[in-house]
Design a binder for these strands. Structure first.
Lengths: 329, 329
DNA sequence: TTGAAAGCGCTACCAA
DNA sequence: TTGGTAGCGCTTTCAA
């Protein structure tokens, strides 16, 4: 591929002048500019950004690590953050950790080698190894979805405890009093622990009761279905069910219907996330809306700020939520 | 940030030797290796991939351009292709064109500057400007979702005509004979044109009839709903409806229900894409499954092959589909 | 087994 | 308004 050198030779000027033309700098005679431009077109010159990046010590690259692409949260989040990053004239280097904790760490290292300017990490957990890897990163890391502020890692999180608390309130208000919770795995502080904790608090606070159970499974409709089938047998008195995600809730409603109970009547059901799935299913799912695209944008802004100013204005940003009232509760 | 030079000074050897240690090359005395390793740990050296890339003239970067992230097709596709690219030891540079035709072209250029090794382009259209931009790309471009093989652009497409044809057959077989089509915009050859063309062919072939109408709108549930509300008024005899996407079909079913007709009984409805939404809605949506993750993988494989061998083994790859039978038809 | 030096393609400083 | 030159951080050849 043609380089500056060739263009210079072809147009009979020096590399410096060609460089000036390419970068639209002042102080180049119009006629030379033209001459150079012609040579550029002629040999199809394309500036080599790698060489530039090395020289300028700046890559305009933002690393983004996600656990998987096909989830409401990450897809919407990516849409949000990519628009902010693009507006800042930077690019997204994307890595899919496929829920593998070791890969997450591996990517943080690889991104540092690539000299990204910062890293956005969609986290589903936060263990010692991950914290250490983040600490060792030479470039700033912003966490999305889990709270790392205790370790001094800037984090954008959703108000999971608040959602849990409100879930309890809504379920009680709808007349339920035997309330269970289906979460995910206990490593996921935000989704499993915080949401359950909020539920427990509101149940205690309002009625001095506890949750019937805290079941755990995957993030899928199928998992919600299977768990609920069993739970219905174990807890016949169940009349309120809070599910950590909408998909789980939809699976749960299916199991409830199959057991000849009516979701939203015999058993109130609540999900989290405002997945479009909840809008089209029957009965439609009452849930909580998290503005995933907005949290994507915010996290990008926080990171860009961190890159710019070398220090954090915010250490934790808790996104609010919205109650979505539909048929299931 | 510490460089090779510092490590060399710190360990009292030359840069060459440090480089050898870093790259695990043979012919370094164990004791020197150790010495160097200690120095590396000491000053927290992280190899600069930008400099390497420049020297080696190789970036291991694959550019991926998508119209938007939060769509079933792209999210699943990204999951598929990223796993293949990762396995090949390469990285994904992601760009979100936000359905903007000019941005697509802009990104192709920017990716060339970044010296990506190849580009994967999720296309929703294919006009002259885009073809020209692809032709001008110094690195191979693989098209996903639209057929560019006429312009000699390697393409991974879904069998849209085949789906349309089968849709006609299924609708007729279910007893419908007044059949309409809701597409998107006419620029989208694959989704709008081909699917309609297939439908037309099967209707002609089986019964020598034509489609009642070819309506057009957006890719959304709402758009399907609004269009169908009007179409029901215009075509009271309608008893079969083929929708270019599942979302449109779901909106259509809502409008049908509201008009006191039963989707799947009074009016048979068929979508395309096997979106999970179709599984949870009532009545559940009969549709066609496209293996989006697989087409993502395939396209990555084709591109890697193209990069490796500098020439295309396949110029067009048509992915098959699967009939999904549910309640709506 | 190690080191010196050239050079990847560019920018930017200084001199002309 | 232009050109020469140094150097970004690395790999690799050649010589020692």
């Amino acid at each position: 591929m043609a380089g500056l050198h060739e263009v210079a030779k072809l147009s009979g000027v020096s590399k410096s002048t060609v460089s000036r033309v390419i970068n639209n700098e002042y102080g180049v005679k119009a006629s030379t500019k033209e001459k150079v431009q012609k040579a550029i077109d002629e040999c199809g010159y394309v500036a080599n950004q790698v060489a530039r990046d090395l020289k300028l010590q700046k890559t305009n690259l933002i690393g983004v690590i996600v656990p998987r692409m096909s989830s409401n949260a990450t897809a919407k989040g990516l849409d949000g953050l990519s628009s902010v990053i693009e507006l800042a004239g930077k690019h997204v280097l994307l890595a899919n950790s496929q829920q593998d904790n070791e890969k997450e760490i591996e990517y943080i290292k690889r991104f540092n080698q690539k000299r990204v300017e910062g890293i956005l990490l969609y986290a589903t957990h936060l263990d010692e190894a991950l914290v250490k890897a983040i600490k060792q990163s030479a470039v700033p890391v912003v966490l999305i979805g889990q709270d790392g502020s205790l370790f001094n890692i800037p984090s954008i999180i959703h108000d999971d405890v608040g959602v849990g608390f409100n879930a309890g309130l809504r379920l009680l208000e709808a007349g339920a009093s035997n309330i269970g919770f289906i979460g995910v795995n206990s490593q996921d502080i935000a989704v499993d622990q915080c949401r359950f904790q909020g539920l427990t608090q509101s149940l205690q606070h309002s009625r001095q009761i506890s949750a019937l159970f805290h079941s755990r499974g995957e993030f899928t409709i199928e998992s919600g279905y299977q768990q609920t089938k069993q739970l219905l047998l174990d807890w016949p008195q169940l009349d309120g069910l809070f599910c950590a995600t909408d998909r789980i809730a939809i699976g749960a409603m299916k199991a409830i219907s199959e057991a000849n109970k009516i979701p939203g009547k015999d058993i109130k059901v609540l999900g989290v996330g405002n997945d479009e799935l909840g809008l089209v299913c029957t009965p439609s799912l009452s849930t909580f809306n998290y503005a995933f695209d907005l949290s994507g944008k915010k996290s990008a802004q926080v990171l860009l700020d961190l890159i710019e100013n070398k220090q954090a204005d915010v250490s934790k940003l808790v996104m609010s939520f919205e109650n979505i009232f539909r048929q299931s509760c």
